[in-house]
Amino acid sequence: MEYILIFIAAVFVNNIVLSQFLGICPFLGVSKKIDTALGMSGAVAFVLTIATIVTYLVQVYVLEPFDLGYMQTISFILIIAALVQLVEIVLKKVSPALYQALGVFLPLITTNCCVLGVAIIVHQKDFDLLSSVVYAISCAVGFALALILFAGLREQLSLTRLPKAMAGTPIAFIVAGILAMAFMGFSGIC
């Protein structure tokens, strides 16, 4: 039950993109087509889950016993950067098809703030390992949901006639705002 609550809270109530503002860059950058949105969501889900597990173990078994809490930011970002490279190499060898689909998005993920953000949030919330994994997966699902919904909206949006000043990014932000408003409707369900 606890895990279901974490899931619903992370996907709908505190959606990582639309209410916590993490991962806005890919949210705007790769949301012009549904296909690329799907690819990006897959890559993020993959890296986010692995990165959360590894950084959790490093925090609990290395940083805390040796009283190195202040090294959190540096060590986490290095772990994420190394992990992204590793995932890229492994994926290329093991599953070329998946690599083809996710390949171009992988290098971008290092600077995606939702990966580092989730890695830090799970320690602020004092989650244990299993809750952290559930939280990471839920955040990835929330990211995918927001990204795919938004990509669908933008595909429609490209067909409409707009005043010149509003075309492109400005209208995308306003649509994102309305989408965020829709997600606010979920607040209070858990």
Partner: peptide, 25 residues
């Protein structure tokens, strides 16, 4: 209140970018 909450951030930034773009244009 909506402008202090999440949706307001997106909407205000959208309009600000449009205004800056118009001035620059």
């Amino acid at each position: 209140l909506i402008f202090v909450l999440a949706p307001g951030a997106f909407i205000v930034l959208g309009f600000l970018i449009a205004i800056v773009g118009k001035i620059r244009g």
